[in-house]
């Protein structure tokens, strides 16, 4: 009973993960400029990776593999936004702008 439930959960997570990864790959193609594409790409690194890794964790059961997978996820969640930030910073720094109107630099909190 329990096993079946876990395996269904794992399947659901994997399917959702694959669907999301496809979705955001399409977003990567559809969005009009670099910064918007960045939203599509960055995402697949977070939730999509999380769902697939969790799906695998449920398949593996509680073992050393689980711990390793969780470490992978943790590191991915630390490093991938950092890489995204560095890339966005580099583009901004290099003077990559989509159009001048979008540069709204007003801070109203």
């Amino acid at each position: 009973m329990w096993d079946i439930l876990v395996s269904y959960c794992s399947d659901a997570l994997l399917i959702t993960g694959s669907f999301l990864s496809l979705t955001f790959a399409i977003g990567l193609l559809r969005f009009p400029d670099f910064y918007t594409r960045m939203h599509a790409a960055g995402v697949s690194d977070t939730l999509c990776a999380g769902l697939i890794v969790l799906g695998l964790v449920l398949q593996a059961g509680i073992s050393l593999v689980t711990l390793k997978l969780l470490f992978i996820l943790l590191f991915l969640w630390f490093t991938s936004p950092t890489a995204s930030f560095a890339l966005a910073r580099a583009a901004h720094r290099a003077g990559y702008r989509v159009s001048e109107q979008e540069e709204v630099a007003s801070s109203n909190s």
């Binding site: 999301l20 979705t23 955001f24 399409i26 977003g27 559809r30 969005f31 009009p32 400029d33 910064y35 918007t36 939203h39 599509a40 995402v43 989509v98 979008e102 540069e103 709204v104 630099a105 007003s106 801070s107």
Partner: peptide, 18 residues
């Protein structure tokens, strides 16, 4: 964001803000 991607007409308002 997933809904935005699948919408046939792109409905996004890209913007910078501090």
């Amino acid at each position: 964001v997933a809904i935005k991607i699948w919408q046939p007409r792109l409905d996004i308002q890209p913007q910078f803000k501090k």
